[in-house]
Simulated assay, not measured.
Amino acid sequence: MDTAPTPTERTVIGMWTDLLGNAPAGTDADFFELGGQSLTLLQFIARVQDTFGVELPVEMLFSEDLTVALAARAIDEALLTSVGDDELAALMAELDGLSEEQVQALLGERGNA
Rank of each mutant, 00 (worst) to 15 (best):
F32E: 03
F62E: 06
L34E: 00
T51I: 10
A74T: 09
Q104H: 10
V54E: 03
G21L: 03
A46G: 07
N112T: 14
E94T: 15
P57N: 12
Q49I: 07
D96L: 10
Q102N: 07
G84Q: 08
L95P: 04
P7C: 03
F52A: 02
A93M: 10
L19Y: 00
L66N: 03
D50R: 14
E109I: 08
T17V: 06
G26W: 03
G36T: 04
A72R: 02
P7S: 08
V83T: 13
A69Q: 10
T81V: 14
D30A: 12
G53D: 02
A105H: 11
D18W: 05
A4N: 07
S38W: 04
T67W: 02
T81H: 12
D18C: 08
D28R: 11
Q102E: 15
T8W: 00
T67Y: 01
A4C: 03
S82K: 13
L66F: 07
L106P: 06
E94F: 09
E101N: 09
L107Q: 14
L70C: 01
L95F: 14
L34W: 01
P57H: 03
L91S: 15
L95E: 15
Q102G: 13
D2S: 13
E59I: 13
N112W: 07
E109D: 12
T17R: 14
G35C: 04
F62P: 06
S63Y: 06
A74E: 14
G53H: 06
E55Y: 04
A93R: 14
A69I: 01
A113H: 15
S99F: 07
N22K: 12
L88I: 07
G53L: 05
E100L: 13
L98V: 12
D30C: 10
A29N: 00
L88Y: 11
L20E: 05
T3V: 11
A105D: 12
A74V: 09
E87V: 15
F31Y: 02
I75W: 00
D85I: 08
L70W: 00
E59Q: 14
G14C: 06
N112H: 13
Q102R: 13
A72W: 01
V58H: 01
